[in-house]
């Protein structure tokens, strides 16, 4: 009897080990590519069957900053992302409010329509966006690229914000007005604090989307509006993998920092979800 119990215990322990092995393999699969990029970006003469680069150098970062003009490109990327976040939020707040709080006939259908840009391959409408923007001379302007990003960012902002506004409890607002607060006071002191986290998370998510957006940027950029992902692509095409790696590290660190910083405030799982009841 004790033997069987011991055997079961060992199996139980083995199971835990198995689980951790599985999780470890999974984590390795996710993180090793970044480690490889990091090693590539600081290594020199890393050829043949070597596990680690034989010589360390920071030259590639110097190249990335001087030759490919990273500061300028970062400025472009941030301006475009900022504009896109601003526009998406301005679109998302009223529309999200209407979706979350008003009774609209055919709401489900309307919402499905708004979300359609996230279901059709971006390249299909990116072609149309590019042609329209050529006609309107919006190609190669920060505003134009940001506007193209709004096509994917706005549905996202509307979705997150409408969920936020839907969760706003009517009774709290009534309580405020019963206690004698004017509508303005209610808005400033009750509504704003309640919806601010939702707006912030929508802004963070649209920022990430715009910061990483590649397809729509590739169709609308010009020489003055190169963004970091597009520059990385160009550098990969040029074949300087070390410099590309250095640029990638510079590009990826802010994304990862944001993820680890915001994980406690906003559920980052929302970043990938989005479609209720698909």
């Amino acid at each position: 009897m004790t033997l069987i119990r011991q055997y079961l215990k060992a199996l139980w322990r083995g199971r835990r080990l198995l689980i951790y092995t599985f999780l470890l393999c999974f984590a390795l699969l996710i993180y090793l590519p970044f480690l490889m990029i990091a090693l590539k970006s600081i290594g020199r003469g890393w050829f043949g069957r070597l596990w680690l680069p034989p010589e360390l150098t920071l030259d590639w970062y110097k190249w990335a900053i001087e030759v490919t003009n990273i500061p300028e490109i970062t400025k472009n990327t941030l301006i475009i992302a900022g504009l896109a976040v601003g526009m998406a939020t301005l679109i998302g707040i009223p529309t999200g409010w209407a979706f979350g709080r008003y009774r609209i006939p055919g709401k489900e259908l309307l919402m499905a329509m708004i979300l359609l840009p996230r279901m059709i391959p971006p390249i299909a409408y990116a072609l149309g966006v590019a042609q329209i923007f050529y006609r309107l001379h919006l190609i190669n302007t920060h505003f134009g690229v940001a506007l193209a990003h709004v096509a994917v960012c706005a549905p996202y902002a509307i979705l997150v914000l409408s969920a936020t506004f839907e969760g706003l409890d009517e009774r709290v607002l009534e309580a405020a007005s019963v206690c004698g607060a004017s509508p303005l006071r209610t808005f400033l002191h009750v509504v704003v604090p309640l919806i601010l986290p939702g707006i912030l998370s929508s802004m963070i998510f649209t920022f990430t989307t715009s910061y990483n957006e590649f397809t729509l940027t590739l169709m609308t950029y010009g020489k003055d509006t190169v963004t970091l992902p597009v520059r990385t692509y160009i550098a990969m095409g040029e074949g300087y993998w070390e410099v590309t790696s250095a640029m990638s590290i510079l590009l990826v660190i802010p994304s990862l920092l944001v993820l680890f910083l915001i994980q406690r405030q906003v559920a980052p799982e929302k970043l990938v979800g989005g479609f209720k009841g698909v």
Partner: peptide, 21 residues
């Protein structure tokens, strides 16, 4: 969090890392 990482980095960089790995 690890599970989310492929979604918060640009696909290009994921591709670069995987190609190297």
């Amino acid at each position: 969090l690890t599970m989310l990482i492929p979604r918060v980095v640009p696909g290009l960089i994921g591709a670069l890392g995987l190609l190297l790995l």
